[in-house]
Design a protein around this nucleic acid. Sequence first.
DNA 1: GATGAATGAGTCTTCATTCAT
DNA 2: TATGAATGAAGACTCATTCAT
Lengths: 196, 196, 196, 196
Amino acid sequence: MTMRSESDAALTRTQRARRRDIIDAAIAVLSQAGFAAASVDRIAREAATSKGTVLYHFGSKEGVLEEVVRSLYEEGGAYMTERILAASGARERLRVYLDSNLRFIASRPEHITAVHRILENQPTDAEDDTVGPLRQLLVAGQDAGELGPFDAEVVALMIRAIMDGASFYFSTHPDLDLDRHIAEVIRIFDRATAVA
Amino acid sequence: MTMRSESDAALTRTQRARRRDIIDAAIAVLSQAGFAAASVDRIAREAATSKGTVLYHFGSKEGVLEEVVRSLYEEGGAYMTERILAASGARERLRVYLDSNLRFIASRPEHITAVHRILENQPTDAEDDTVGPLRQLLVAGQDAGELGPFDAEVVALMIRAIMDGASFYFSTHPDLDLDRHIAEVIRIFDRATAVA
Amino acid sequence: MTMRSESDAALTRTQRARRRDIIDAAIAVLSQAGFAAASVDRIAREAATSKGTVLYHFGSKEGVLEEVVRSLYEEGGAYMTERILAASGARERLRVYLDSNLRFIASRPEHITAVHRILENQPTDAEDDTVGPLRQLLVAGQDAGELGPFDAEVVALMIRAIMDGASFYFSTHPDLDLDRHIAEVIRIFDRATAVA
Amino acid sequence: MTMRSESDAALTRTQRARRRDIIDAAIAVLSQAGFAAASVDRIAREAATSKGTVLYHFGSKEGVLEEVVRSLYEEGGAYMTERILAASGARERLRVYLDSNLRFIASRPEHITAVHRILENQPTDAEDDTVGPLRQLLVAGQDAGELGPFDAEVVALMIRAIMDGASFYFSTHPDLDLDRHIAEVIRIFDRATAVA
DNA sequence: GATGAATGAGTCTTCATTCAT
DNA sequence: TATGAATGAAGACTCATTCAT
């Protein structure tokens, strides 16, 4: 074991870069070749390194996949949370939720596809958490009289389903008019949640 | 050949019944344990038979999975097509589309989850075909003046995404009030596609 | 078990024909597709029957292969032995040996290829017996002063090797001038065994 | 990288040595137990290693067998080609061909048997190439007036057949007098190809 | 007599992981 | 830090054989 202090920034930076390379490679293989093809060896070759090195950095294949998932959530949270919190009013917050979510999805379709494939192939499915905050947002809007009397659970589910479906559609339609697409989704949920 | 009564089923399974058992087992394993866990051996044990028997009847693992997919499409087509064709007018046809689709999904959530997992783990993804007919239905309604000036492609995609998401939700919420859920979805798309 | 007397010629004839069909199918598969491809199932399909039927008639796969070998030896013996015994003098007998052997090989190249493939893939190799009679023929000729002072063992081996090689050559060169080929082989061994 | 002495061989096998071990094991199993018995597992055990290691080094079973064939051709070419080219005159060249060929066969009968078994069990058989050069040698000798008016194709085939048969005979008769055997073969073909 | 169905043993191959260097 | 080598577990598939009908 080599000694390595926290302040040894040069090495740490190298290490981080190498980890980033491997995660990027994993994302590329997962999104382009599918879950079954994403072996440690294939990811290593995509990252121009060796199987041993991948496992040296992440301990196990599961470690790599967890980092692929974690980093997406981290980036997604950073991207969306402040935008949504900055919005005032439930209606505006819903608009920003849809807008920032779809823009984030469009900005990294491969990463999102990769995470989908990982989650679909894992026994643990506790995705319900992603619906909770959204439902709360809607219910708060209804309580405040800003949003109409729709079923918040159903609408939240619809929105989640549309977000999940969007990544697949975006990655297969690179020439999409994103602004128009987003505007249309917002318009429809504006109508769906209107008070009148 | 001796005549066999229906009640003799335990001893004299016909080939069709054995195939059905295996397909049911494959659906159960795929939906409950995921694609990666769905080995031929696991499916065989779930069907209370042997690996060799599964491959004897279907030739290969791929043959089993293809039959899982095929049988769902067959059943789904039979279930929905006549209902939708029977409807008059684009608005009514859209309602029937949503209703029959969601009822079919709710009637066999495991089968649908299984097919999702198979398609997600296959290289070839040409699911766009499922959006085409729906878009045509919407455009026809717009041309006839029955439906408003929304973006038919976007709405069709939203509907497809919601259908795809529904099977997961239905299978994880068995106590769901299906009628209410369906009514809400229909209400929202009624609004979204309203002329005014 | 059905009763079947020896005089029940109709059934016996059927049975013999069926066995013959299966042996012919085995020969065809072995010679055309190789030993590895010669599964019971493949042989059965080639014979337009079922795996169960093949095993019913021959007990095991080994039984089929043994019959392929046995029938060739039987036919070969019947074809060659009387011709060779009818020849007078060692030199003439050697000529007839070469001639009848090569003609027999040319008459059923597939059967001979099939037997080669079987023997090559069996642990038991006691092919030396085929050289013995030939060596005796040569030695007798030398003792009688008809043949020269060559090494009988080596010449016998050469002849056997040429016979073995001939079947492969004959089956890959159907347009061969057999008479000329045989004449040449005889001429060479006439010279090789000449007294002077 | 530490310097390693030759005597350190037990601990630090180089990849080439390990590959050689596996090829030797494959040759041993093929020649002693036959093609059907030559499973990857059996070869691995013969090489005192594991199935995984064999496939790690050669990629597939086919890769192992190809190397068994390739290495024999390489060694045979190196052994014979220079000797034959060094000979002057067709008659002398034929003698050297027979001599070097038989000596090479006698020097590694197991390897040759192994290659025979591999080629016999492969669909593609284009062994005719081995006859071509030999026939050319004979025809050149006839054109030069050194060799008599025999059928070059037939004689070439006879020689090839004898070479092929020799490996089997040599491996089953380890106490053979090789020099005498070779001398006899050469004598016979000297006579067979004599001008007079 | 004949055959469809079933099965267990054996084969090749992939792959995540461990380890020595 | 990095990696080549090695390995065992698991998977899909083939196939000879058994058995009930």
